[in-house]
Structure formats: structure tokens, C-alpha cells
Design a protein around this nucleic acid. Sequence first.
DNA 1: CGCTCGGTTGATGCACATCAAAGGCTGTGG
DNA 2: CCACAGCCTTTGATGTGCATCAACCGAGCG
Lengths: 238, 238
Amino acid sequence: MGFDKENGLRAALVELSNFQIFSDLDSSTIASLCEGGSVVLSSHREALFEAGAQAKYFGVVLSGAYKLSRPSPNGDDTIIHFSTPGDVVGAFIMAQDNPKFPVTARAMGPSRFLKIPRENYCSRWKERPELIIKIQNLLSNRMTQMHIAKTMQRSTLSAKVAALLIDLVNRETESKDEAILPLPLTRKEIADNLGSSVESVIRVMSEWSKQGLIETNDQHIKILKVDKIINEIGDGSL
Amino acid sequence: MGFDKENGLRAALVELSNFQIFSDLDSSTIASLCEGGSVVLSSHREALFEAGAQAKYFGVVLSGAYKLSRPSPNGDDTIIHFSTPGDVVGAFIMAQDNPKFPVTARAMGPSRFLKIPRENYCSRWKERPELIIKIQNLLSNRMTQMHIAKTMQRSTLSAKVAALLIDLVNRETESKDEAILPLPLTRKEIADNLGSSVESVIRVMSEWSKQGLIETNDQHIKILKVDKIINEIGDGSL
DNA sequence: CGCTCGGTTGATGCACATCAAAGGCTGTGG
DNA sequence: CCACAGCCTTTGATGTGCATCAACCGAGCG
């Protein structure tokens, strides 16, 4: 365990330099920023942390994906965000006194997460304005994404599903004809993210399958006609 | 005009110290942070800035209120946020290269706004980690608010309206029996914020008026039975 | 005095939720 | 190795909350 942990950590530090936020830092700086960190392996559907728990750490998604959700008044959770590799999770609450996680993080398929102690943020990270600014820019992008999502609240369900899929594929690749979603995604998760019901999502997506716009196998969704799906986004308006 | 402007600025700097973000700074520091700033007077429905415009400044709402909105695919705008006095607007995009406003800001009733040049943020503000952290905390609160709103997407319209009203009154006062909304708010604005239609909002609210839970005159909404309205929030779940 | 703006009410229809039932697939324990 | 339980997907039938359309009213205003 100790061995694994250390090994995982060293490997993780190398991976970090591929992510935008660390891209222009040298490896010793990265090591210092992450000192005391550890790599967590999560299996499918396992919780990384629960909403309301004390936030003693923040971190970075290394591989796989996590869904961030909040308990909904009606019982099942609402998914707030899908975090993919390179995403910084929890950084923006670190500066509060005695922060608590506002969401639950649950793995989607086997995933790896680099935990970084909160103290690091309050000392080493906070001292570097460029880093904090980068975090702020990340946050501000996420905020803009949420604004866009809010703007679509009056669109039809197909437009919302299309927008979600396009948003997810754009994190990885540039626009091509085809694209594969970088994370395993069930219809229920889509529904929980859009505030809709599984059945409705299924009705929308099976129509697309029939038309050959998308293809699913084993939880992995592949978009065959990216442009056609993008068209669906606009359809609510016309 | 020049006289007014200067005068307004000096008065504004005094007002700033009442707002949380500046509360523990002395007046000369505040003056330095705001150097080159100016006070803008907006009349009802006048735009402070338009979405897509170059963001050469950020600022603080001094009095009145502004609604931040984005053009919606279907024509009319979606209101993203209501900014009341003390709100910092636009700070989190200042750190981007060549930032553009992601939203349009429009005054709700006569309002005053303190514009601060972007350069200040990139120099004087950025140098003060505590300030940046405060901005980050503001942002993170706003983010949490949006999460909560998202969590309510499956609730009934009455629950959403109730939640919005309670959110707005909580900015000013602590919970009492009665509360007056701190800004003039039309049913259409409520609808545009919730992604609903004016008529539906009216149907919900006139029911409450009949029941004596709220009272409206001259765009100002007064909540007579705060606890009853809070109950409405939960109703979607039960 | 016509105009725009905000509020209100009723009639109608649709998009989507809800309920119900069933089949495949995976993991787990007897 | 089989049985059973979850989880995911699918399809159909039924219901409903809210959007939409269409009037109409009162108030402020140039």
C-alpha cells in the first residue's frame, strides 16, 4: 500500500505536466505544490467524497471521470458537473474557513484522483498569484458553461441532450465528423444532469440511433454525425 | 459632468467600506485600488454594458440593481443573475487575455455603478492575495447558488419562484415574518430568470396574493408570510 | 390621447413526466 | 454453476404542468 501509494504519486506528478494548469511549471515546483498528496483509486460508482463532508483536500482528476452531484428534493441526485482528466476539483472552496464539499463526487468507471492537502492551497498555492489566477480562470469558464446551460432551459430536450454531448466531446478533440465521448455515460446520468427523466432521454437518443447519428456500445457513446447533432441544438429556437 | 463624476467617485469610495469585500481595508488602500475609476448613473432599463463587448473594466454595484442576462436562442433574454449593491461584477473575467463580457447588464430602476479599470485588477488587485481570495470566495458562493438553482430544475414552478424570492430577501435581512424585496422586479423578469413564462408566474403569484402571503405595489414585492413562502419551496418534493 | 408597459384571465395544446412491464447484462453468493 | 438482485435500456399507455395564443385593463408618459 505504502509502496503503491508512493509509486502512484510519482507517476501522477509526471502526468500533471500534461494538464493546462501545470503546463508551464517545472517538475520540482509541481512536486512542491503537491507535497503530501496521494493518489486515490476509485472503482465504478464509488464515492470519492460526500456532500457536506469537511473538505480537507482538493485535487485533480488523473484518469477516468467523476460525476459531481447534489441531493435533489425529490430523492435522486442532480448531477452538476462531469469531471474529466485534468479537471481541478474543490480548489475554489479551499480558501473558505472550514470548507465543506458542496457536492458528492462519484466515479464513473475506474478512476484515479490526486488528493492534495488543503494546507498546500493555503500556503504554497496562495502565494503564487499566477496559479490562483489560473484557478480563477478555470472557475470562470465553468461559470460561463453554467450560464450557457441556463440559457438553454427553455429549449427542447433534444437540444439540451445535443448540447451536453457536444460539450463533452469538445473537451477532448476538435470538431471532426465523428467523436467518442471520453467517459462512460448512462441515459440516467444524462437525465440527472439535464433535470429530465430517463425515458425521455432514451426516446430522444434512440431516434438518433435509428437515424445513424450516434451509436452506443457498452456505455460508450459515439457521435457519428457531429454536425447533425450540432444542428439539433439550434432546433429549439427555430 | 466632470464635477459630478469626481464628486460621485469620492462619495462612492466611502460607500465601498460598507461592503464586505472592502470591509477590512483602510480608505487610502481603497482609493488606490479604485484609482481611475468613475461612477456611472444608469436609468431604468439602460444597459451598462452589452454581452460580447470588450471588458475594459469591472466594478461594484453601489445602489439600485442590475440584471445580468444572455440572449436566448428563442429571442428574449435569459436572466442569469440579479446584482444588488455590494456585488462585484466582472472581476473574474479580468484575468483573461482580452476579456469580453459574457452577459449584458441592464439597470432595474435608477442605479449607480463604480467602474474600475481593468489595469487596476491586473496590477494592484492581483498583487494582493487576500483580495483575490475574497473574489474567489464571492465567485464560489455564486457558483453554489447556481448549483442550488440547478438542483431545483425538476421542482414545480411555485417552488422555484418561492426559492428566488427567498434568495433575494436573504441578501438584505435576516429571516423575519415580513420582508421587502430589495429591488423592483417584474413578473417577466422572474419568468426570464426561471426559464418560464410570464403568465405562469402570474398565476402562481396572484394565488399567493389572494392568500395574503405576498403583496405588490409599484414593482415592489413584499413578502408577508416568509415561513409560508419557504414552505412552498419544499412542495415540489412531497 | 395614443402609446408602451406591466399585470391578469381564460381556452387550448403539447412536451414531457409518470406509471407499468419486460428483457439483457453483470456481479455475487449459496 | 445456477439463482437472484441490481442496473441499464426499452416501449407503450396515460396524465399533467405549463407554454402558447388571444384578449383586455389600468397606469404612466410624451
